[in-house]
Design a protein around this nucleic acid. Structure first.
Lengths: 246, 246
DNA sequence: CGCGGGTTTGATAACTTTCAACCTACGTGG
DNA sequence: CCACGTAGGTTGAAAGTTATCAAACCCGCG
């Protein structure tokens, strides 16, 4: 057993991307061993973020992007009057902070919704490494592009759906992302409050609550506080295509 | 006079980025002459798109991104039921098509709202050239990041503003972009219909029309069909910060 | 055991959409 | 060159959806 000695600080434990069970979510496939070892050297190390704490705040100088190892985050913007607009919810394997590239400062806040751990990837080094690993460059463009496509989807949701449709789309999206991580597609725990869901969906918290109650009423879901059980996932999907029938 | 012979097809006229008066909008600053000549070789050539025509459609294989030389575009998604969601309006110097990187296919349609001309930039070659010109890599990441930030702004608009606030934000955004291109900040021509504005802002065309009428009523703007004259630009800006006072 | 954040539910108000009629400008073809 | 057709725009009244305000509830935690 190679137990670490006391002199090895926990902070020095580097992430080994090559060993990470999330690498298929966050890295390109088909890297060589050599490429992996370069990558392992790049990743700056893990950082724990306690529930409620910020990983970064709007205005902070941009230095790194972050891959979530464990936990759950929201990103939001604060308006002058103190109201917040949640712009995204992020889970393990997803990448945060790319908004900061354009101005060399973050434009939103990233707040942990549960105790979480992230891998920091210093951006300057990432740009450097992309010169050496073409697959990484290609992959990273894809990641950013995916973010743009995701945002377009949210714009569509906010621009053209009604409250219940928005909530159905939201739950189905979560379901799909949990599935991709090996969790149940139909049973999950909401890490965010109704107010945060509402902010993300452009609704008030009461409206979110009412929509959930309505779904329960129709037998689409069981809601117990933050625990959601999707009973009729096809019925939920029909809520989205329903617009096609009007 | 070096008049082209008949054998010189118009299609062969290459763009010279180094000569383009929009290069400051679309390229990094500080490129060397040598770098510029590489770039000139890269850009695939101009393409004219007549009003109403598509530059690309959702589902088209992704081959290139496009910089707008002249004209005006909208990007939109078509829902199953035929309704459209406009996701952006783009003008000279702006770059389109980055949504296509993630799936190697475009996810939206790009339609010219007036006779336009674009520079196609084959994506594979762009990735290649970034290996040679670091400044280009950095710049292009910034462009994509800016797109993400822009989308966040739209999400905020759709998620937390009322009809008149949305329209005010929209007009001020146009004003600012026209200004950056040397046009009047207060006098401009809308290239899109009320319906397209409405789709972009998550409103019905009648609501857009009413909001414009209300602005005219309050002496904020003069509206004559598609010609907009902003009379009280500070008043418009107050419409946005107004939320802070409630 | 009680407090407080988060949630649910009801009644009312505010906003936006819908439906409908009418108007305006522009391009086409006689 | 003018008339007419049509797409786009404006306005009004009614309906629908969501927000707001208010009260009560639930549950975890100190």
């Amino acid at each position: 057993m190679n137990a670490p000695t006391a002199s090895v600080s926990l902070n020095n434990i580097k992430v080994a991307c090559s060993q990470c069970n999330l690498r298929e979510l966050c890295l390109p496939v088909g890297l060589t061993e050599q490429e992996f070892s370069k990558l392992d050297a790049l990743v700056g190390g893990r950082r724990k973020v306690k529930r409620g704490q910020s990983l970064y705040r709007a205005g902070d100088p941009f230095e790194a992007i972050y891959a979530i190892r464990t936990g759950f985050f929201k990103t939001d913007l604060l308006l002058e009057d103190g109201r917040e607009q949640v712009t995204g919810f992020l889970m393990a394997g997803e990448i945060m902070g790319m908004d900061g590239i354009s101005n060399e400062a973050h434009t939103c806040n990233a707040v942990a919704l549960e105790d979480s751990e992230v891998c920091g990837i210093p951006y300057a080094m990432l740009e450097q490494l992309q010169q050496e690993i073409r697959a990484l460059q290609h992959h990273f463009y894809k990641v950013m592009s995916r973010e743009i496509v995701r945002d377009q989807g949210v714009m569509m949701l906010l621009g053209s759906m009604r409250a219940e449709e928005r909530l159905a789309a939201f739950l189905l999206n979560l379901s799909q992302r949990f599935t991709a991580r090996g969790y149940s597609p139909t049973d999950f725990h909401l890490r965010m409050t109704r107010e945060e869901i509402g902010s993300y969906l452009g609704l008030k918290l009461e409206t979110v609550s009412r929509a959930l109650s309505a779904f329960q009423e129709s037998g689409l879901v069981n809601v117990q506080q933050k625990h959601i059980q999707i009973v009729d996932i096809d019925g939920m999907k029909k809520m989205l295509s329903r617009q096609a029938n009007c």
